[in-house]
Write a protein that binds this DNA or RNA. Structure first.
Length: 870
RNA sequence: GCCUGGGUGGCGGAAUUGGUAGACGCAAGGGACUUAAAAUCCCUCGGUCGCAAGGCUGUACGAGUUCGAUUCUCGUCCCAGGCACCA
């Protein structure tokens, strides 16, 4: 460690005043642009990114935690000599702005920009090391212009397309929702029931990338396993076959997807989804027409929750038509069944009651034939005696030339046989659907398309981009895009033929903006195109991305997709946007409940009584901080009371980043106390520290000095490892606390001993530098008070000296038959034989060993001796 | 049902490669300083038996592997998250 200290300072007993110190350094960092970065090929780059916030107007504790974690990593990497890109911006489009506009009569833009200003001040007050020159807001035309340009490119390549489709419709939000925004049949935002509605919608063909999105998950070794698992689950690839079933007395056919082609000979009926157009056409002109119509109406009226619930009765109705099993010729009645989903596969399922439980139940209910085609080895199954479907592996039966083979082998064999006759083929099916991006809302990126009666769908010419959002729009229209009520926006001359045409009035899903903001940060001022190749390729990929687990599927999957699209357009040269991902836990807080009044604010529940009704108030579960649970702690109040450094320290110390953090007011006070302890020991000994030379000549350390120096260097090693390898700031901080405790016990002998003074100084300086990424304001201040040279952020991270850190005496534990019986102290270099002798001679173990036969002695160098006796 | 994670003192958590379980902090108790309080500094702090030395016990539960298991294997229970009539 080499500290460069000089100059003299007066002894100063100034108290720790976080606000003055923090504001001073925040201004300094701002004025000197400490965190501005550019491309520097002489240094290794490190791109650190935290998920950008929606500008709601105020930051919450989740932001404080997320951004503090990121800031520590960024500052640590800076001190390690990396060229660190650490940007911040605003996910600024979205519905709350519109809702606020309606209730407050403000314009969404004015509301949004005012919120951005307010939140930016709050983030600055926390002292985060952002390069604010790269700040971007997705609602700015400078940003969404490029998104429109890429949309047109995607349309040209068929990656963006328009089709009529049933969409998830939220009546309360008056908009369509992506599948990912529907949670258990409810709107993710307002929790109201989601309905189905047919609309013309724009889609991104994400399914074209399904295989790559799935397969390259393997490469994401820096991602948490569970996020990878969630994405794999979401994409949901399954291998199987597509098989055609001719419809009797027509030249049409029903195509099904199945993962069990081996059961084809046992298919005795067909189940189709109520939404399947075949349902109506097959029952037309049959006696079943009325019954079918009634069944479809009944089923579609059922809300999705009920329809998807586990215990829903399996029901169906015969369409009046049959199709033909292509291998057995069996006349299969075609049923409409309420459990068949139009969204998955082809909306039709070949039913094999003997080998699928749902089909079995259905067949029993409607008296349909059950035909066994797979049997356990050496057994026969009697359909009449079966009480459940046989779904295990087995031997083929009643399946013509496939009889006697293993069913797993028959899957491919039957599919191949079908393929030869051109009535079937191997197929892969995905749960993942194309990404519907149309939103019938105002505050989003306009979709840059024009509809002309003569020319059809025409993109807005590049020179006319961006398609700006018009300003004077009534937001209170319902059920259609507010833009459709703005004639001067809608009416436009066709770019191709010049005749009157109409603009698309939907806007894009806001997840589109957040799918590429990380790339735009590298060149947010670039005005010649979406991305500046040189800069984006210098910085990308993001080395470390940090954010909430709630984005495990939506945002992270879309961003991966978009990155691959950008790559295929030659705009970036990476396959994956985020090398390492850290999903931090939620910030939680104790709750209070009253049986009558529900959730209570803590101050309403003092002394176990509800202040509202006088009833009993109970301490509830620890829940995620939320307005509805009335358990939020406002970061601003926290900073007001203790300062930003304490807020940061507590967020880091209370739990490792990936775990939920239980907020504790007492714990915050503890963090504040620790900072005061650091402050006090440094300031009270400022003379010693700033006057003490580097290692004094003729340096002869006594045991105390050696012990302190050892602790100092061990702490440097521990903190470096904890931050570098694991992001375990809690244990890093506890190591510094140990060093500080050691310092408080250390006897300076009235400063008369230069060796002691030096060891003391070295330890205090280590505390200040090691804490700098976590509590930067206090450390900058102490660094300058103690005469440190320059800015602490430009001070190299200290190296530890392995010689000094090494213990020269080791405590060895002695076990007898696995139980701890004694301890001995040995020199660090003691030989195995020597340790063994000492252990066997140890007084404490004698009673356990004497008179017994020693079977075995195991010596683990530096750790323990294990004696086995009989 | 399937896929992930988890389960350690009064509490948050630590134990990094199978090697002293409970670092560090909070809370609690005790002491010093003070006329007193606050603040500060120091000490104790899993359970249990014991005056003590020390013993026994203990990481959800039950087995197993091992000289040795919070850590590895198998089974069970519970909690959280994700997916789910997926053909």
């Amino acid at each position: 460690m080499n500290f460069l200290f000089s100059g003299t300072h007066h002894m100063d007993t100034t108290a720790y005043t976080p606000h003055a110190i923090e504001e001073k350094w925040q201004k300094y960092w701002d004025d000197t642009k400490t965190f501005k970065v550019g491309e520097d090929t002489g240094k290794e780059k490190y791109y650190l990114l935290e998920m950008f916030p929606y500008p709601s107007g105020r930051i919450h504790m989740g932001h404080v935690r997320n951004y503090t974690i990121g800031d520590v990593v960024a500052r640590y990497k800076m001190m390690r000599g990396y060229n660190v890109l650490h940007p911040m911006g605003w996910d600024a489009f979205g519905m709350p702005a519109e809702n606020a506009a309606i209730s407050n009569k403000t314009h969404p833009a004015a509301w949004t920009y005012a919120n951005i200003d307010a939140m930016k001040q709050q983030l600055k007050r926390l002292g985060f090391s952002y390069d604010w020159d790269r700040e971007l807001a997705t609602c700015s035309p400078d940003y969404y212009k490029w998104e429109q340009q890429l949309f047109i490119k995607m349309w040209e390549k068929g990656l963006a397309y328009r089709r009529k489709s049933l969409v998830n419709w939220c009546d309360s939000c008056q908009t369509v929702l992506a599948n990912e925004q529907v949670e258990g049949g409810q709107c993710w935002r307002c929790k109201s029931q989601v309905q189905q509605k047919e609309l013309e919608q724009w889609f991104f063909r994400i399914t074209q990338y399904a295989d790559e999105l799935l397969d390259s998950l393997e490469k994401l070794t820096g991602w948490p396993e569970r996020v990878v698992a969630m994405q794999r689950n979401w994409i949901g690839r399954s291998y199987g076959s597509e098989i055609d079933f001719p419809i009797e007395n027509t030249d049409r056919k029903i195509t099904v997807f199945t993962t069990r082609p081996d059961t084809l000979f046992g298919a005795t009926f067909m189940s189709i989804a109520p939404e399947n157009p075949l349902a109506i056409s097959l029952s037309k002109d049959t006696p079943q027409a009325a019954a079918v119509k009634a069944f479809i109406e009944k089923t579609l009226k059922q809300d999705k929750i009920v329809r998807c619930s586990d215990d829903l009765e399996k029901e169906g109705v015969f369409t009046g038509s049959h199709c033909i099993n292509p291998v057995t010729g069996y006349r299969m009645p075609v049923y409409i069944a309420n459990f068949v989903l139009m969204e998955y596969g082809t909306g039709a399922v070949m039913a094999v009651p003997a080998h699928d439980q749902r089909d079995f139940d259905f067949a029993k209910k409607y008296g349909l034939e059950i035909k066994v085609v797979i049997e356990p080895e050496g057994q026969t199954l009697d359909p009449a005696a079966m009480t459940a479907a046989y779904v295990e592996a087995g031997i083929m039966a009643n399946s013509g030339r496939f009889d006697g083979t293993a069913n797993e082998a028959a899957k491919a064999a039957i599919t191949d046989a079908l393929a030869e006759k051109n009535i079937g083929k191997k197929a892969i099916n995905y749960r993942l659907k194309d990404w519907g991006i149309s939103r019938q809302r105002y505050w989003g990126t306009p979709i840059p398309m024009i509809y002309c009666d003569a020319c059809g769908t025409v993109p807005v010419p590049e020179k006319d981009l961006p398609v700006l959002l018009p300003e004077n729009v009534s937001l209170e229209v319902l059920g259609r895009s507010p833009l459709s009520d703005v004639p001067e926006f809608v009416n436009v001359a066709c770019p191709a033929c010049g005749k009157p045409a109409r603009r698309e009035t939907d806007t894009m899903d806001t997840f589109v903006e957040s799918s590429w903001y990380f790339a735009r940060y590298t060149c947010s001022d670039f005005d010649k195109g979406m991305l500046d190749t040189k800069r984006v390729n210098y910085w990308m990929p993001v080395d470390q991305y940090i954010g909430g687990i709630e984005h495990a599927v939506l945002h992270l999957l879309y961003s991966r997709f978009y990155t691959k699209v950008l790559r295929d357009f030659g705009l970036v040269n990476v396959d994956e946007p985020f090398v390492n991902l850290l999903t931090q836990g939620m910030v939680c807080m104790e709750t209070y409940r009253c049986e009558k009044c529900g959730w209570l604010f803590p101050e309403e529940a003092e002394n176990g009584a509800c202040k509202k009704c006088g009833g009993a108030a109970q301490v509830g579960r620890v829940e995620k901080m939320s307005k509805s649970c009335k358990n939020v702690v406002d970061p601003e109040l926290l900073i007001g009371k203790y300062g930003a450094d304490t807020a940061r320290l507590f967020c880091l110390f209370a739990a490792p980043p990936e775990l939920d953090l239980a907020w504790s007011d007492k714990g915050v006070e503890g963090s504040f106390r620790f900072l005061q302890r650091v402050w006090r020991i440094a300031v009270e000994h400022m003379d010693v520290i700033s006057h003490s030379a580097s290692c004094p000549a003729g340096f002869l350390p006594d045991a105390d000095v050696k012990a302190l120096r050892r602790k100092t260097h061990q702490t440097i090693r521990k903190v470096s490892e904890d931050i570098d390898k694991r992001f375990h700031f809690n244990t890093a901080i506890s190591a510094v606390m140990e060093l500080l405790n050691h310092l408080y016990q250390f006897d300076l002998k009235d400063n008369g001993d230069p060796a002691r003074a030096f060891a003391f100084k070295e330890a205090v300086q280590a505390v200040v530098v090691l804490l700098a990424p976590m509590v930067p304001h206090m450390c900058e201040e102490l660094w300058s008070l103690l005469g440190g040279r320059g800015n602490i952020m430009h001070t190299p991270w200290p190296d530890f000296d392995p010689e000094i850190a090494r213990e020269d005496e080791v405590e060895i534990v002695i076990q007898v038959n696995g139980k701890l019986r004694g301890k001995i102290i040995t020199g660090a270099g003691a030989t195995e034989e020597n340790v063994r002798q000492q252990a066997l001679a140890c007084e404490q173990v004698a009673p356990w060993v004497n008179g017994k036969e020693i079977k075995k002695v195991i010596v683990v160098p530096g750790k323990l001796v294990s004696i086995v006796v009989k």
